[in-house]
């Protein structure tokens, strides 16, 4: 696709879309004429909010990895596992696909998300016009993948509630799981509060 700068945009025509129903209306209108939602040209405080949520998720990511996410006790044996040690144990046990999945969902995705959002924010604040389309694509990927990080949390919550076999096997959640859930939720909120249109605002300004 060629450059989009020569195309006109809704904002240029003083039109703004409703966040909820997507109806285009005049920018001066404060409430959507159709659904009654607040009308903003861009998401309010998008960059600041995203930064705050991203920072919070980065902070929580430390205990999420440092603390055990769960303790599997089978036949009296068992040690608390952090995310990474869980991946290693799965790998040692020969369950490579599962290890890969957990590694991907629990380590790669959150990190990529955080780096990605951070990169997008920085690129906007630096008013970079570089590969705006690819960055939008990146944002879409981040949005899409974000929820998959919850796989780990779901798995833990299901296992904890299911595996209550007393001496044979018991799974206990750890503090890391809570922190990790916080990371996932915060990164999802961060990506939600990020307005990808800001990427294009810069290119349009130029």
């Amino acid at each position: 696709m060629s450059e989009n700068t020569h195309h006109t945009s809704a904002a240029k025509q003083d039109l703004s879309s409703c966040h909820s129903c997507g109806r285009l209306q005049h920018m001066e209108v404060q409430k959507c004429g159709r659904c009654g939602g607040a009308i903003h040209l861009r998401r309010a405080n998008s960059i600041e909010r995203t930064w705050a949520l991203l920072l919070a998720s980065v902070i929580l990511y430390i205990p999420a990895n440092f603390f055990p996410v769960m303790t599997v006790i089978s036949f009296g044996q068992g040690a608390p596992d952090t995310i990474m040690s869980g991946v290693i144990h799965l790998g040692e046990a020969g369950m490579w696909p599962l290890a890969g999945l957990v590694f991907f969902a629990s380590i790669m995705v959150p990190v990529l998300k955080m780096i990605g959002i951070g990169f997008l924010l920085i690129s906007i604040q630096l008013k970079l016009t570089w590969r705006a389309k690819d960055r939008t694509k990146l944002y879409r990927i981040i949005e899409m993948l974000g929820r998959w990080s919850m796989v780990d949390i779901f798995m833990i919550s299901i296992l904890v509630s299911l595996v209550k076999l007393g001496a044979i096997a018991t799974i206990e959640p750890g503090a890391g799981a809570t922190a990790f859930a916080g990371v996932v939720i915060l990164t999802m909120l961060a990506s939600m509060s990020f307005d990808p249109r800001l990427i294009w605002d810069v290119t349009e300004e130029k």
Partner: peptide
């Protein structure tokens, strides 16, 4: 913005966990 309360809370939780 009030949104900064979230990272502060996150930091507090983190500190608390580390302290624990």
């Amino acid at each position: 913005s009030t949104i900064w309360i979230i990272p502060i809370v996150a930091a507090l939780i983190g500190i608390w966990l580390v302290f624990l």
